Amino acid sequence: MRKGSVKEVLSKIKYDPNEDEADYYVVIEHRGSYGGVKRIPVKEIELGHGYFFLGETQIPYHRILKVMRRNGRVIWETRKRTNL
């Protein structure tokens, strides 16, 4: 399941012609709400060096908890302990 860094996984999804980024989303820790999470479609984000961008908002990669397919299959998951 976990192969490489989250940025490597997202780069493969976004730039590999054999992948459809519309089939994936990320689950992030949502700042400001204790224990809150948010799902973001991969097609809506732009990759940066230490951050990814959702419109004008910069979100650090360390806030990503999971990368998932639309069917619910986990592609990548953080090593942090979560209850998700």
Rank of each mutant, 00 (worst) to 15 (best):
F52N: 04
M68K: 15
V27S: 04
L84R: 13
N71S: 09
E21I: 07
V9C: 04
F52W: 00
E19M: 11
L65K: 14
K12E: 14
E46S: 01
H30F: 15
H49Y: 12
E44F: 03
G48W: 10
S11V: 03
K14P: 00
K3C: 01
Y25S: 15
L47N: 03
R69I: 00
G36A: 11
K38I: 10
L84W: 08
K3H: 11
Y51H: 07
I40G: 04
K38L: 10
E46Y: 05
V67I: 08
T57K: 10
T82I: 15
Q58Y: 04
I45S: 03
E19D: 09
F52E: 01
I64D: 03
I13A: 09
L84C: 05
V6T: 06
N83Y: 09
Y34V: 06
V27R: 11
K12P: 02
R73Y: 06
G72I: 11
S11G: 05
G72F: 05
V37Y: 10
L10D: 10
G50F: 00
V26A: 03
G50M: 03
I28H: 04
N18Y: 11
G72R: 15
R79N: 04
Y15D: 06
R31I: 05
N83I: 13
R63W: 12
Q58K: 12
V9I: 12
T57P: 00
E8F: 09
L65Y: 09
E8C: 06
K7Q: 11
Q58M: 04
Q58A: 10
S11T: 15
Y25A: 06
R31W: 09
E8Q: 14
R81E: 13
R39S: 08
K80W: 14
K14H: 14
I28C: 02
R69N: 15
S5A: 10
Q58C: 01
L47C: 03
V9H: 01
I13T: 07
G48V: 04
T78H: 03
V42F: 08
G35F: 12
R2G: 13
I59V: 10
L54Q: 14
M68A: 11
F52T: 07
V9R: 08
E19R: 02
Y34S: 05
W76G: 12
G55C: 01
A22H: 11
I59L: 07
L47W: 00
V6C: 01
